[in-house]
């Protein structure tokens, strides 16, 4: 059974239809990429999956790990194993990185009927993972994302992903705002998290991210629908021809 099965998904924002019938199924352990031009509905899809308010599903279904995802609140989806790496990670003045991570971990433990995590053990675990991603102790002590560079914010997202160990990682334009070095660090972080029990949905405008994170399948999203699906070679076709064909095809 697929980890996530999206069927005929329609969604609108502020009364405007954005997603117009998405069908997508990801098996456990697979990495899929969604590529598409600006305004095709890429970010909307990520928000709909994460359960953001204001993104209204008007038709279709999403089954995640056997459960009806659309019936769950955003926090329940996260606890169930969905992780959205934000395109624009949010600044939380007054909330330190360490506190933020601890709250997220303890929310999961509470939902599982477990007690709060041991503070020392937690600190050790986070530090080890942070080090691998070049996230310094100083960054963990600071307020989440406040004053962070674009690269630091994205590395921080991947750190959260690594600490929370989700079943499905949705990476929303993780490459945006990154220079080539930062892109490498972030991609390595993501690749290190690839495993049999973890699927990924990599959303991007550009092919370059997929040079680093090699997907099993690529879907082209345009006009709110998946227009084409193929293997990794599809990224190169798009690089050569652009999205123009799909925009026309749907029009």
């Amino acid at each position: 059974m697929a980890l996530i099965e999206i069927k005929n998904l329609h969604a609108e924002v502020g009364g405007k239809p954005i997603l117009k019938g998405i069908d997508l199924s990801i098996e456990s352990g697979e990495v899929h990429a969604i590529m598409g031009p600006n305004g095709s509905g890429k970010s909307t899809l990520s928000y709909v999956l994460a359960g953001r308010e204001g993104y209204e599903v008007t038709e279709g279904s999403v089954t995640f790990d056997g459960a009806d995802l659309l019936e769950m609140d955003a926090d329940e989806r996260a606890v169930a194993g969905i992780f959205l790496a934000f395109q624009y990670p949010v600044e939380l003045p007054g909330v330190t990185g360490m506190t933020f991570l601890k709250e997220a971990v303890n929310a999961r433990r509470k939902a599982a009927g477990e007690g709060e995590i041991d503070a020392m053990q937690f600190l050790k675990m986070v530090r080890a993972k942070a080090k691998a991603l070049g996230v310094t102790d100083e960054m963990l002590k600071r307020a989440v994302n406040v004053g962070f560079s674009g690269g630091e914010k994205k590395r921080n997202e991947i750190l959260q992903m690594s600490v929370l160990e989700p079943k499905l990682c949705v990476l929303d334009e993780t490459d945006s705002g990154l220079d080539i070095d930062a892109l490498k660090v972030v991609s390595e972080g993501v690749n290190a998290l690839r495993s049999q029990g973890r699927s990924m949905l990599v959303i991007t405008h550009y092919q370059r991210l997929l040079e680093h994170i090699r997907p099993d399948r690529i879907h082209v999203l345009a006009q709110g629908k998946i227009q084409k699906t193929g293997g990794p070679e599809l990224a190169h076709e798009l690089e050569a021809s652009g999205y123009a064909d799909f925009a026309e095809a749907a029009a």
Partner: peptide, 13 residues
């Protein structure tokens, strides 16, 4: 957006 960021990490509302 701050509230959603916390929710998206599993912290209850």
């Amino acid at each position: 957006d701050q509230l959603f960021y916390l929710l998206a990490r599993g912290v209850p509302r």
